[in-house]
């Protein structure tokens, strides 16, 4: 008898399953794209050749218009408000996230950690813009609504990250301090807090970078900051003003990112 290896006899038992998955995904995606292209009006009245002159109006002309130069201090003031909204919101969110994070951490919250995790999941599931709208409607337009929206929303992400940090701490140190006769509060202050503080600070800074961008956007729904003058100028098609505001925003965001990234590198 001669041993033979016929390539056709080698069968992949999972082949049929892959094939059906592939067909299923293809049909599903085709359906989604069919709906997308038929139900959404993707037409444009402008020609792509308008883009050049428009970009010139955004990012070139404003630098040579004295009446725009006069408005720069106003824009900077509005941008500072955005930065302040993000700062106040992130800081208060970062503080409020600490108890929730500890509650949500499995090694501290114990049987109750599901409560903390539930709160955090609920907050993160709710889009930030909806928070902002509810706050604008309930406490009125302005930066105060923005701080509330940013603060509450930051708890969701920071609480989750904090809980992960807390779950990774060295629990042996807690036993060690217990063995020296330390009280519960002393164990917290000497054993737990020093292990988590650097990461907490680093994550709060990271969240601040995100929140500066968010509070720019939230201004558009009336939650204070540079968003409101931006949308006003855009609605009246004053692209030179919009362009100058964009320059202020992009520069500020870049500077804050650079500073924050630098500090974060040194912390951990």
């Amino acid at each position: 008898m001669k041993p033979s290896l016929d390539i056709r006899t080698i069968k992949n038992p999972k082949r049929m399953k892959y094939w059906w998955t592939f067909v299923g995904i293809t049909i599903f995606m085709t359906l989604l794209y069919y709906v997308a292209f038929t139900q959404t009006n993707l037409s444009t009245r402008n020609s792509i050749w308008d883009a050049g002159p428009l970009l010139k109006r955004f990012f070139w002309d404003p630098f040579f218009m004295p009446e725009i130069h006069d408005k720069i201090p106003t824009y900077i003031h509005a941008m500072l408000e955005t930065v302040a909204i993000a700062y106040a919101g992130t800081l208060i969110g970062a503080v409020l996230a600490i108890p929730v994070g500890f509650l949500a951490a499995a090694n501290i919250g114990g049987h109750f950690s599901f409560i903390g995790k539930g709160i955090l999941n609920a907050v993160r599931a709710f889009p930030e813009i909806l928070f902002a709208i509810i706050f604008v409607a309930s406490v009125g337009m302005g930066p105060y609504a923005g701080v509330l929206a940013i603060g509450i929303n930051s708890i969701g992400m920071l609480g989750k990250l904090y809980a992960e940090v807390i779950e990774s701490i060295d629990m042996e140190i807690i036993h060690t301090l217990k063995a020296t006769g330390a009280s519960k509060i002393q164990i917290w202050v000497f054993g737990v807090i020093p292990q988590v503080i650097p990461e907490f600070c680093s994550y709060a800074l990271y969240r601040y970078e995100i929140d500066v961008r968010s509070s720019t956007v939230l201004g558009i729904v009336g939650a204070g900051g540079v968003g409101a003058p931006l949308i006003l100028a855009a609605n009246s098609r004053k692209w030179e003003e919009v362009g100058m505001m964009l320059v202020v925003i992009i520069l500020t965001v870049t500077i804050i990112d650079l500073i924050s990234t630098n500090i974060r590198k040194r912390i951990v």
Partner: peptide, 11 residues
Amino acid sequence: MIFQNYNLVKR
């Protein structure tokens, strides 16, 4: 009490 892994607060 002294432990194998020292159990110091590293930071």
